[in-house]
Every structure is written in C-alpha cells, then in structure tokens.
Design a protein around this nucleic acid. Sequence first.
DNA 1: GCTTGACCCAGTACCCGCTCCAGGGTTTGA
DNA 2: TCAAACCCTGGAGCGGGTACTGGGTCAAGC
Lengths: 145, 145
Amino acid sequence: MRIGELARHAACPVETIRYYEKEGLLAAPRRSSANYRDYGPAHLERLAFIRRCRSLDMSLPEVRTLLEAIERPGGDCAPVDALLDEHIGHVATRIAELARLKEELDAIRAHCAGARPAKSCGIIETLSRPAAKRAARRSHVRGAK
Amino acid sequence: MRIGELARHAACPVETIRYYEKEGLLAAPRRSSANYRDYGPAHLERLAFIRRCRSLDMSLPEVRTLLEAIERPGGDCAPVDALLDEHIGHVATRIAELARLKEELDAIRAHCAGARPAKSCGIIETLSRPAAKRAARRSHVRGAK
DNA sequence: GCTTGACCCAGTACCCGCTCCAGGGTTTGA
DNA sequence: TCAAACCCTGGAGCGGGTACTGGGTCAAGC
C-alpha cells in the first residue's frame, strides 16, 4: 500500500506519516522501484496506535515510551499503567487549572456591563491589576482557546 | 530603569521583554548612551497588563487587540467585552473537551490491573482500537500535560 | 588603575507537532 | 499522448517564548 492509501485508512495526513518516520515512531517501509514507500498491515496497525494515543493528548515522547514497552519481548505492562496514570494526572491538573482560570475570567467579565468609555471600563481596570497567585503550568496538556 | 529592573518589577524574563518589543506589544524605550534600554513607569504599567492577560491564557494577538482598544481615544469597551466573552467561551470549550478526554482515559486505565504480560494487557489492546469520535480542537487554549 | 562580576546588546537556533511549499518524478485512466 | 493525481526530498513556518554566542558596559573593591 502506498502512503496515500495508508493515510486514508489511518485518517492521518500524508505529511504526518513522513514526519513520524523521520522521528522514528513508524518504521521506514521498503520502497518500490520508483522510490515510493510501500506499507503493509503492520504499519497501519502501528500508525493507528500512534494516532489513537495522540487523540488522547499524549506527547510523542510518551507514545514512543508506550511503543517501546509494547515491543519489549516478555515485558509486563506496569510501565504502560504508570505512564497512563501520570498522563491522567496531567489532564486532571489542567482541568483544575482551567476551572480556576474560568472563575477568574468570569469575575473580571462581571466588572463591565458594556458600552462604556474605555477609560472607565471595570474590565480594563481589573486587567491592569496584579493577578491572584495561580500555580504555573509545567505540563504538556494544551490549554483553552 | 534598565531592562533588568523592569523584569524584576514585572516578574517577566528579560528575553521576553525584548521579544514583546520586537512583536510591537511594548513600545521601544529610549536608549542610554551605552545603547541600554531606559524604561519609565508607563512601560511597567503596560508590561504588567500584558503579563496579566497572558496569565489568563490570552494569545498575543488577543492582547494586542485589547491594547489597541484601550489606546483608541474616546472608544468604548464593547470590543473588550466581546473579546473576553469569546475567550471565556474557548476556555469553557477546552474544559469540556478535557473532561471527555479524562473519562476516556479513565475507562482505558480500568482495563488493566497491572503487571501482566504486555501481550495480554487490556490497555494496550484498547489503545489499538479506534477512538470514540471526539470534536477536533481548533482553539488556542492549551491542553493537559 | 585594574580586575571581577553583574549586567546589557544583537542575532541566531531551538522547543513541539505538525503543515505547507517548491520543484521535481511516476502512475493511472481517458 | 496527455492531464490529473499521486509520490519524492528538503526546507521554512506557526506560537510564545528560551537559550546560547560573542561581544560591550558599569560599579565596586583592591
């Protein structure tokens, strides 16, 4: 199967497949005489796994760790469990952070009822004042917009 | 005041201040004879505003829009209100997405009680199956790790 | 007057996870 | 035979900085 067909089966852009190969997440397939990549079912399975993990907001290093744990012959799944637990923790943390953020934004928004001269707008004034202390983000799960 | 002092007052890395100047968010200050940047209180006020907005997860284009709305003489604050409403909407959307994601991750995690051979681990099997459909993220608020 | 260390400058490369582009070659169907 | 659709490599770009190189400057102590 050529890269376009693999891309359709895995619902993954062609460029992303080449990128995964470059990053060592997906094994380089053999090439046709015209130098086209030629994939088999194992590649599709592996790519689907990667895409599924990505859809769960795992980073590529995390996916790599999972793939290595799976490939390791005779290994148990304890590292997989640990990685998943940690990832779930990150997601929970980010949810809590965003909930606090939303409270703060709602409070700021309440300072203005609309259409007043900018100089006397309570929102602008509030935005100019220092924030209540919030924990810094250090984790990889993406934010809000 | 030199850039280091401004950085301390605003709790903002020096490099970031230079970056904001390059991006046109912070006006270029006058220079000392040794070509050092020389800031006044207005710069600190403006930088504090930018940092406050960033701490609320606004993007730099959003901050730019706010700054322009504030600077516009005689303008009212309706655009500010609108921007804030939109941003709050993005945050709420991201919270909902992450909550769904966490449910899915919890469900996957429940498939393994630990320390089984990787081949028979329910997590790995689940990760290999296609995901339930979830809405794609298109918004700027960051995710979970 | 000289040294030491803290500070400042400009410019560039790097992070992630792609995405898009340029400029070519190949395959497929009409 | 020709066009459209596909494939290739290599490189640049996104946001929002961070880090580094290789210099210049300043203030204090000796």
